[in-house]
Design a protein around this nucleic acid. Sequence first.
DNA 1: TCGAATTTGTGCGTATGTATC
DNA 2: GGATACATACGCACAAATTCG
Lengths: 253, 253
Amino acid sequence: MNRPTYLRMADDLRQKIIEGDLPPRSRVPSRAQLSKQYEVSDRVAVEAVRVLAAEGFVEGRPGSGTYVRERAAPRRLRRGDFHERAGGSAFASDLAAQGRTGTWRSSSETTTATPAIAARLDIEPGAPVVRTDYVYLDDGEPAMLTASWEPLAITGDTLITHPEDGPFGGCGVVERMAAIDIAVTRVTEQVTARPVLDGEAHLLDVPRGAIVVVVRRTYLAGERPAETADVVVAADRYEFSYEFPAAASAAAP
Amino acid sequence: MNRPTYLRMADDLRQKIIEGDLPPRSRVPSRAQLSKQYEVSDRVAVEAVRVLAAEGFVEGRPGSGTYVRERAAPRRLRRGDFHERAGGSAFASDLAAQGRTGTWRSSSETTTATPAIAARLDIEPGAPVVRTDYVYLDDGEPAMLTASWEPLAITGDTLITHPEDGPFGGCGVVERMAAIDIAVTRVTEQVTARPVLDGEAHLLDVPRGAIVVVVRRTYLAGERPAETADVVVAADRYEFSYEFPAAASAAAP
DNA sequence: TCGAATTTGTGCGTATGTATC
DNA sequence: GGATACATACGCACAAATTCG
């Protein structure tokens, strides 16, 4: 079991970072220095640093150097509707609880459902939907991307056609739907993770190859989907927190 | 914005995979062929394939070739206790629902709490705990790793000291704790993602650099943590699914 | 303001070890 | 055994960005 040189080198550097020998924001030795210190070729040094970059430990800035990234404890985003407050944003209230300020930008457009979105909304592919894109900011820094889709068959010709406009603009989905007598009763969320897409990396200000957590959320009114959304955050900056009561099955007997 | 050659090449190959031009289990052209086809050096071909490997699209087998990985729809693991059945395993019942068979192996040891675990269990660092490691198998293939910790102060000198032994062996945490009159009332789960660790990669049979989703779970009896665990799965093979009722706040007014 | 040195990211050609066929 | 393929490793080169005198 011969561990390759570049991985042993990455192990060593990672250790130095974790133990505080290379503190956050400090500069990692340049690749010329590294290859001399470790007595390896410059390519091996490049590979070692690349591993650490993929893991989110360091970030290279061309022309300047490679720097240890800040690794603050991930900020917590609570899931579940219990903490949605009328007229407020779950994101903003989560951040407020951590002494930060959440704001957002959004834009809506009417388009047609792709097959994947149609399946999630249980409508015909090509049916009209309102797509809204959000960029959530945490103390002004991009933090979370969301794209939501609502069938025009539900919200069309009502006051809530566009999530961020009208008297219910900015309200939660449950509240908005209630305004047109749609009772949202359940929420389902599927949590996955994948490498960041190039477009997202730009918006979230994370390096290429960084890991994002994706939540695929659907609001249901009875059995009928009323809204579905994709929520994307950088995995090393945010974590999703769920809380629920323990099983009733144990209480029954 | 000049996209580097190896990334454009990776884009092209990724497209071919997604569109089915390179179907699952098929062999990607060797790097000699690739470098000839794309008129680049073999190193560039290596870099391009490496990108796809990191994304989970392909997997190299030394001496044989590089193959497109199966990308079955991720199997769903439902979270929340509502589906825990007395005497059964949530994992097994999830897989049974998808026509598969879930089994597991486990081993327990008594050890002392690290500072991180102590904080999660709200006990003193160094206090004795029972650590249990699980490997869950999906139709015989490794699928999910779990490590759980229980304070010996709670379970010591009882029938349930070891989760998998005794009359309550293999039962859920809620049921086991109920057996010693500990009423588990709440569960919290924090969901994160990161690159797989080498030890995990070996156990889960995923390539180095693959992404795993990690759930940090804690069972609470009132305010007192009774058990905490880390659950690890390959991000492209499993997804966690949460479901909960929509906000009561909308129903109130 | 300018230029020289440094640094990262990328690219090329080659070589070796080992696994597979 | 021989051919092929991947993973790793070495050394070099260049462009673009940054730094600094």
